[in-house]
Amino acid sequence: MTSSAGAETPVATATEEPPPPARRRRRRGPDLLPYVLVAPVAAFIVCLAIVPAVFTVVKSFYRVDELDPPERFVGFGNFTSLFHDSAVVSSTENTLLYVLVGVALSTVLGIAMAVTLQRPFRGRSMVIAVLILPWALPGIVEGILWTGIFDPNAGLLNSVLTSLHLTSDYHVLLGQDRLLTIALIELVQVWQITPLSALLVLAALQLIPGELYEAAEIDGASPWKSFLRITLPLARPGVAVAMVQAVIATLNVFDQPYVLNGAASTGASLTMQTYFISFENLDFGTGYALSLLITLVTLLFSVLVVRFVYRRVEL
């Protein structure tokens, strides 16, 4: 409509949008609830892991001897003395053998067990429960159990070998031959860590669609070819995690060689040398240095395993 002055008066239509709501003058602050919930765990990790780690790094550059105070800065002197210590060098060789044997055996056996348990069958839950038992037992308890098996006088292993006429009489199995001692000790550790490897690989196998195996079977692929072309490639994330936990366990093995073989050099590991240097020789500075080196080597080996074994799988 038009006014007498000739100006048009705006007319509101039904389609006209209402004016936008006024902006809130006060913005909502950040949500602090997630940080509050995570704070106790973060504080626990800092106190339990990061603080001791920093303390170890700092003390590894000092001469810390409770019988010869005060502490003195020696730079890389503790690390240099480790490379000239024959016991440490021998333990390093033993530990590398532990890693090679342990990682290889636990990975192969873990994959075999996981493939066996991949498809449901009657009693599968019971088998998995029994499988976990060796992993759930403490290393010292396992060492004591296997001491009876390796006993030179009335051990089960000597009895079986004699019954099968593989040996004429009972023998001392541990502490005499270096390779045999390491093999038998690592057999005990493999018995402990393989169940976890199997469960980790089994978790990866459960994510593989059954349609892939059905398609491979229709195409005429044999079970072995399906294993090589489907199972192994798609299970690589689980295999990588299993290998990493095996590397960590074997590089830091202590309970089994200490219980089964004592302080004998034929089976001593690097962690055992850390104990001997720190608490028997009271040379804590060198013990800190060796602990730091073991940590760095463990981290390096784990990164290499993840780098060359792990592959991201997209189905």
Rank of each mutant, 00 (worst) to 15 (best):
V160N: 06
L166E: 10
I193H: 05
A136Y: 12
A104F: 04
G123E: 00
A235E: 01
N252P: 05
F308T: 04
N78Q: 13
P20W: 08
I193D: 04
F76C: 09
L48M: 12
F150M: 11
L100K: 01
N261P: 04
V38A: 15
T107K: 00
V188F: 10
V11Y: 04
V259D: 09
S159L: 07
S163R: 13
Q273D: 09
L299H: 02
A39V: 02
P237R: 07
G238D: 01
E71I: 02
A242R: 03
R178Y: 09
A235Q: 04
L37Y: 13
R229L: 14
F79R: 03
V103A: 00
V64F: 06
P233L: 11
E66S: 03
L48H: 05
P257Q: 10
R72N: 04
P34D: 07
L270V: 14
L196R: 03
V46G: 09
D31I: 09
P20H: 08
K59P: 01
V54Y: 10
S90C: 02
N153D: 14
L145S: 08
I149A: 13
L96W: 06
V88R: 02
Q273R: 14
L299F: 14
A7C: 02
F254C: 07
I182R: 08
G143T: 09
V64T: 09
A43L: 14
L292D: 06
G123Q: 00
L109S: 01
L212V: 11
L207Q: 13
V247Q: 07
F55E: 08
D255W: 10
V46W: 06
A42K: 04
D177K: 10
P120G: 00
R236S: 08
K225S: 15
V58A: 12
L97A: 08
F55H: 09
L184N: 02
N94Q: 09
I149V: 15
R236Q: 04
E16N: 05
T56S: 15
L299M: 13
L304S: 09
D151L: 06
L199C: 03
V201S: 03
T181F: 12
